[in-house]
Design a protein around this nucleic acid. Structure first.
Lengths: 155, 155
DNA sequence: TATTGTTATACTCTATAACTATA
DNA sequence: TATAGTTATAGAGTATAACAATA
């Protein structure tokens, strides 16, 4: 083998496919990547405050305001006052939002199954283990790299 | 195993790591994702027209104008008139641009090697094969999915 | 007539800072 | 005094449409 770039390049290719094609798939539902991401977290967390969404998405509160505005205007979520804290706003999926997320979850499961359809159990196991190892290492390497850069910048 | 989502979720995780951390890494060079992507293509193609860059990046010519403006202002590329076609503009890497891309290429190679460091040759082979299969299938599935959606929309 | 790149306009995502209402 | 969310402002990426210069 001795072509280490093969693995990395494949990961980049997967990234590219997931990014571009998922974006187009969301568009056909009238959603963007960012808005879908918010819906996804909302579905995971259940109805919650904008602050919690900002934390979950690692974006600014201001950004969440804009995304919720857009999702409210298109009918995917609804705002309601927080029952006890009058500063806060509770965001919840509407019926349309919930239905959309159910459909997406189903699509995701179907895609996941098709992805490994026909592979032997052993092949699947090897691939999962390999991906685990690579993912973990990638995370560690990139983190170390960033720390190094930051240190270099401080100097 | 029987948890097909594991594979897909790992791919999503890799996507997330590559996207977020690469973006931050580029930032430390004073570059954004989009501008880096343009530099990357420019490095691959060699000095070329904005039209060719727009095609390579799958974005509008107008978009390329903006990216080249920014990269020119920050010294990574330079515009020059096309020798024979007076409508066209040739974009080329500056010395800074070329140096930056060399560094990135070196970083990419180093990261790729570290990613599989310590894996046996057989493990590497299995992983590469598995990734190949999954990538190819993912591409096919998502393409089919998109075609289906488009058809549904036309109806 | 077709093509290259630009100006004009607009939308989305994102951030920081200042501010209001509330805790 | 601190926190939740908003308005104000700004910058990046993206697109389409109209236009100028050139092929």
């Amino acid at each position: 083998m001795e072509q280490p770039l093969h693995i990395f390049d494949r990961l980049l290719e997967v990234t590219s496919i997931l990014q571009n094609d998922m974006a187009r798939s969301f568009e056909s539902n009238g959603l963007t990547m960012s808005r879908t991401h918010l819906l996804w977290e909302l579905n995971r967390l259940g109805a919650t405050t904008q602050k919690a969404l900002a934390d979950a998405l690692h974006v600014s509160p201001r950004n969440v305001t804009g995304l919720v505005d857009a999702l409210e205007a298109t009918g995917f979520v609804a705002r309601a006052p927080h029952p006890t804290d009058r500063r806060a706003t509770i965001v919840a999926l509407t019926e349309l939002g919930a239905r959309t997320m159910q459909q997406m979850e189903a699509d995701r499961l179907r895609l996941s199954e098709q992805l490994i359809d026909g592979m032997s159990g052993e092949q699947q196991r090897q691939l999962a283990l390999g991906l685990d190892a690579v993912t973990e290492r990638l995370h560690a390497l990139v983190s170390a790299d960033l720390a190094q850069r930051e240190e270099r910048q401080r100097a």
